[in-house]
Design a protein around this nucleic acid. Structure first.
Lengths: 362, 362
DNA sequence: CGGGGAGATGAATCCTATT
DNA sequence: GAATAGGATTCATCTCCCC
């Protein structure tokens, strides 16, 4: 086995510096990267500050601010370039942040020629109120979903997400509460372990929408391991990178505790996933003719206009041949419609949509 | 009077290039700038079809075309620098965009040492669906509210916004529909005048939250003049800059038509509601009966013909039930009339039109 | 101007495999 | 690489018409 085979990293938490450890990951080996990077501010001592209320006081005179943006941008470019290298060509990356860093992220993402698919808003139903009434309550965090290039054939489990959303297309604004209660990890003194632990609901949506079962998901800022926990629950593989030994310990415990089968939070979601995103193979019209499922020589539209269907499954009009789809243009003034849902056969006195015949014989 | 006195620009639409005209505005003269710049959408050259086969008519205007991010960024820097110059030290700027441009805006805003107050999300309740099921529905646009420096004493009308939000602190995610219907301006052929007209609700929140009465509000991408219209309705002054002659003409007409009805004797919030929430909800007849506003069992028409009104708000004639409207047909030889304006109740010896009762109880 | 139904429409980086 | 065929895909809102 090669030392750098991706299998060596699967479902492990790697303790160490994000950039150092990213460089160890083989190229084009990852299906999804989720990154919740820190809000980095250079204070002279090089302290990393997470986005957490007003904790970044004291580093905001103009010069420091600009200087720290520069540092932050450089750091961002470095880990994003590593992400580009290790991501499969059709893989996806999700990042999240607030106004403090999301514009830095988005700008650099676009400059590195990544291709943005969606920008999303997580609306927190229970944000910290603005006690002094000085501005609007900061009730959103922002997500960017992007891929390596415009031509990427990324995964999007459309029907799964629709199904999760009362059977309507899921939009780009997600509304649920911040992580609290039992889900929130505590240290052995009973204090919250991490300031910005992400809710599993968030990772559930990300992973369900843009990965397939058994995909490999990497999180370079693993923290308390929400990404790993949800990946395991959804039968995906994870790789975590985290610099803080304490977080690694608790994250490992958290993930080890999860039993993959029959979890109450995610009952049979993989089966749902499989059911809803399964592509159905339909027979072609020529097959239906050959198998004698369509015996009639003529097709009709809803206005009972009649066309001739030949043995090759082509519609003949004025000595020209058209596909069943293309023929709709002729009869609908250039509107291009799905021919399967447009043409009927006549059986005795009944008109039957050819799509219904197709579905009976799939 | 100085040639460049700001009073010369007040409540005028300036036809011409955004940058040229911004340069004419005196320094530190503006209280609020709202900027809805081109988004640089980069749509493909293909036609996007709706599911019913019709074409989707999206933004394909010349004003949204740029050759590169670099060109877009340079343009952005230039107009933002002019904005910094003309804005009062305690003034506010709001910009908006989607993922196509919002990271460019935010990044440049931060690099130019502006100070961000809030990032906000406008969640559209009726966005264009994703016809192909290729990604999450783009249902949000993004806003950035920022000021000239961290020390700015900007305006934030906290209580007004709280009052507008059922007396809860207003958050950074706003939910309302896109501009359509009567609010949407049409050209003289009946087509939509502008591809991206913004709803008045949006400007209402921006102007109410971060300006005072009689403030001067400048919009460098004036378009159809939503900013001017709402400014006028709320007793603020506007200055619009717009390059397209047609838009200017229609915007001027739109603004001229507005009657200012603010009155100092009434609480602002009531007036705001009166101005913007033009739709009056009338009670239904069943509600009036339930609330005992209509106590009588009989209704009369102008010929004093009597009918029985049951507890479900239906008129009974010859063992048949009719709506109050449908019942007019019976009594008017098939002429269909508005029942509210046809039927009376009898109170002592007075006949009272049920429409009057309804209006008293709206 | 009630109520039901048909039709229109909105800032969109909106498909894919085969020949 | 371009052209073609096959096949999958929509939600809230507003206006207008009719009864």
């Amino acid at each position: 086995m090669k030392i750098n085979n991706i299998d060596n990293f699967k479902n492990k938490i790697i303790l160490g510096d994000c950039l150092d450890k990213l460089k160890k990951i083989p190229s084009k080996s990852i299906d999804l990267i989720f990154a919740d990077p820190p809000y980095f501010m250079q204070t002279g001592s090089g302290i990393l500050y997470r986005i957490d209320g007003n904790k970044y006081n004291g580093v905001n005179d103009d010069w420091d601010k600009f200087n720290s943006y520069k540092e932050y941008d450089n750091f961002t470019k470095k880990w994003l370039n590593q992400c580009r290298r290790i991501l499969k060509d059709n893989g996806s990356i999700w990042v999240m942040g607030t106004f403090h860093n999301i514009y830095r992220l988005g700008f650099i993402i676009q400059n590195l020629k990544f291709w943005v698919i969606n920008d999303l808003t997580w609306e927190k139903t229970n944000p910290t109120p603005n006690f002094r009434g000085t501005k609007f309550v900061n009730s959103n965090e922002n997500l960017i979903w992007f891929v390596k290039s415009k031509n990427s054939k990324f995964t999007f489990n459309y029907k799964t997400m629709k199904n999760l959303n009362e059977n309507k297309q899921m939009g780009s604004v997600w509304r649920f509460s911040v992580c609290s209660g039992k889900e929130r990890l505590k240290d052995n003194k009973g204090n919250k372990l991490h300031n910005t632990q992400k809710p599993e609901e968030l990772l559930k949506r990300i992973i369900l929408s843009s990965t397939k079962k058994n995909d490999i998901i990497l999180d370079p800022f693993f923290g308390t391991g929400t990404t790993g926990a949800v990946a395991k629950k959804l039968h995906r593989n994870f790789i975590g990178i985290e610099n803080n030994e304490k977080y690694v310990k608790y994250a490992q415990e958290r993930i080890d505790k999860i039993e993959i089968i029959l979890n109450d939070d995610y009952p049979l979601i993989d089966q749902v996933n499989a059911i809803f995103d399964k592509k159905v193979k339909y027979p072609k019209i020529i097959d239906l003719i050959k198998e004698n499922k369509i015996k009639t020589k003529y097709l009709y539209n809803s206005r009972k206009e009649k066309v001739f269907l030949n043995l090759e499954g082509r519609i003949e009009v004025n000595k020209n041949e058209y596909s069943i789809h293309k023929a709709t243009e002729l009869f609908e003034n250039g509107r291009y419609l799905n021919g399967w849902k447009y043409w009927y056969i006549k059986e005795k006195e009944n008109y039957i949509l050819i799509d219904d015949i197709r579905k009976e014989n799939k």
